[in-house]
Write a protein that binds this DNA or RNA. Structure first.
Length: 294
DNA sequence: CTGTAATCCTGCGAGC
DNA sequence: TGCTCGCAGGATTACA
């Protein structure tokens, strides 16, 4: 269903006041920022808010377990972060839509919606803040097991897509490609922004069915995904309002959007007016001339 | 197999 | 000016 022009305009204006959910490039930026601040540090105290995050899993005695643990490494898989600890366990973190995972001086004022504070041995604090609480922070007893579970539930990292299997996977599905790109069990880490940007780069309409894409088209799409993700990581992700990296710095990729949030504006390639439709329950921005439906 | 929609949640702008 | 309303969406689940 195509929204009317006034509706499109309304959505366009609302797009830039909306929080941007952290997708793979944002989470990767957080991981890179956190590593120098966190690896080698020891947790000396833990405080939690009473509010429930999405699907939190914490074994009994978590504070006793955590205190004295040193951070061995920070890993990223798709949109998940694992803070690996010396005891063999890890903190498994998902930023949801509005999550912020930062290291700040202990003297920094505690902002609203701060759900976890991990005090560190250098006088700083690792904090998890999440206004909408779509994110999660879980303590797992085994980092290896947590990593294996993620691997069993998630598809390829974008930079590690198997070209042949990707092509087969795309062409064996009747689903709209937009829905397919959001499916974390196929390619993991893509969210609404980078799905739209990848489809624009590949010149594929978001509603195009996988079966309709040529073998060459699959190659174009795979490379488009990889280039969009790589460029976004270079720009430290996209900040519209709230997303920040692990050191609190904002991203810059929002200045490079070709279609996302640009409803009613001119296509960067052909100047045709960018449109928005709903696909897979998500707003999907595209150029009707560059991305013709097949 | 496919899609749709509700669920969790808060912030914010539009409109009255 | 202050209220209500609708919308934004990641992951999951229920249902058509």
């Amino acid at each position: 269903m195509l929204l009317s022009y006034p509706s499109s305009l309304r959505i366009h204006h609302s797009a830039f006041r909306t929080l941007v959910m952290p997708e793979l490039p944002e989470v990767e930026t957080v991981a890179r920022d956190l590593r120098p601040l966190l690896v080698g540090r020891t947790i000396t105290a833990v405080t939690r808010s009473k509010l429930k995050l999405r699907n939190p899993w914490w074994p009994a005695g978590e504070k006793a377990y955590l205190i004295g643990q040193r951070v061995l490494a920070i890993h990223r898989r798709a949109k998940y972060l694992r803070v690996e600890l010396t005891g063999g366990g890890c903190l498994l973190v998902h930023l949801g839509m509005t999550g912020q995972f930062t290291v700040v001086p202990a003297s920094a004022p505690t902002e609203t919606h701060t759900h976890f504070v991990f005090e560190l041995d250098d006088g700083k604090q690792l904090r998890f803040r999440d206004a909408r609480r779509f994110g999660s922070v879980e303590l797992h007893a085994s980092d290896t097991a947590a990593a294996a579970t993620l691997d069993s539930q998630l598809g390829w990292e974008p930079n590690d897509i198997d070209p042949v299997e990707f092509t087969t996977g795309v062409r064996s599905s009747k689903r709209a490609l937009k829905a397919r790109l959001l499916d974390q069990t196929f390619v993991a880490g893509i969210g609404n922004i980078y799905a739209d940007e990848s489809l624009f780069r590949a010149k594929i309409h978001p509603e195009t069915r996988g079966v309709k894409v040529s073998i060459a088209g699959c190659d174009v799409l795979r490379i488009a995904i990889q280039q969009v993700i790589a460029k976004a990581i270079e720009s430290r992700g996209s900040t519209i309002r709230d997303y920040v990296g692990g050191s609190g710095l904002r991203g810059g990729f929002q200045h490079e959007f070709a279609v996302y949030g640009r409803t009613g504006e001119a296509c960067v390639s052909c100047a045709t007016t960018i449109q928005v439709i709903r696909v897979a329950g998500r707003s999907s921005h595209f150029c009707p001339k560059c991305q013709r439906k097949k």
